[in-house]
Design a protein around this nucleic acid. Structure first.
Lengths: 163, 163
DNA sequence: GTCTATATTAAGATAGAC
DNA sequence: GTCTATCTTAATATAGAC
């Protein structure tokens, strides 16, 4: 088994249960590997597993989101993980979250600007896009209504480009 | 020290760190009480502390949010904790979260209906209100820009009542 | 690369004195 | 009502065989 196979499993675990909510026993069960084997792949233990899962999701985000918004433009040089500190604890996520939000907002604002919106309005709309996405995810999960998220997502393009 | 004094401390701890992220040592430190003393107030341990913190926040929500939207109308009979199961684990929060969202949406939709909006539009706008609130909270925290939340909140009344 | 076995520490929880 | 002391279990982590 390769380390690459473990990353999506780790990512899903941390996303669903949170860092403290994921125990090595859970990871062992989810991956089918013994605890000792996990330490073979991640010598620094759980903290390193989180770090690897974050890097994995970051890469996914670059390829599947940012690269779609920036099809053949920016080489995404800042996409390589440059803000990674030694072995990350849960608090260490904050900076990565911030960076990812900022870059997504810039990407969306750029697209909106090319659609004819002013810089200020584009920025505001891009923030609004993230707000709607994040907020509808919370409501969809809280109310157990996935359709609510789908609806918001479908209306987003019109909402952002409108007046 | 009274049990009532502990509730806001517990609530803040659970909100900040999550259920698994809060240890009895942390609670002991935050409250100034020994672990054994905590078990005097909450014989069923951490699970009961979460339950109490949830009930406390629910009461706060009733008095400070719903009662403001329903000034002297509904007696809020459903406000008393009727959906409480024995001793709650983290999963047990889901149903409470759902109920609270639903009631807030109904409350906002009712207000909007009285402002002249149609039932369907009012419902949709009420959902949108929660989406904006929750989403802007996430962005404000993630970007470390509290002003973003303030801005969204200020614009909400107009946004909801407009066309 | 994975295992069994074990060490080490911290967590949740109790007993009983004051 | 709060404490000290202790119990029990689970968590993180390591050693060493295969």
């Amino acid at each position: 088994m390769d380390r690459t196979d473990l990353l999506p499993i780790l990512f899903n675990l941390f996303r669903e249960y949170g860092y403290e909510g994921v125990s090595l026993s859970k990871i062992s069960q989810a991956t089918g590997l013994g605890k000792a084997s996990l330490y073979h792949h991640f010598p620094n233990g759980k903290a390193e597993m989180l770090q690897a899962a974050l890097a994995y999701s970051q890469q996914w985000f670059e390829e599947n989101v940012l690269h779609v918004l920036y099809p053949n433009r920016s080489p995404l040089e800042s996409g390589t993980i440059s803000h990674q500190t030694s072995v990350q604890t849960p608090q260490g996520c904050q900076e990565q979250v911030k960076l990812r939000m900022q870059r997504l907002i810039v990407a969306i604002a750029t697209v909106l600007t090319e659609q004819g919106l002013s810089a200020n309005l584009a920025q505001q709309r891009a923030e609004e896009a993230l707000i709607m996405i994040q907020g509808s995810l919370i409501l969809a999960r809280g109310l157990n209504k996935p359709a609510l998220f789908q609806r918001i997502l479908s209306n987003l393009p019109d909402t952002l480009c409108k007046p």
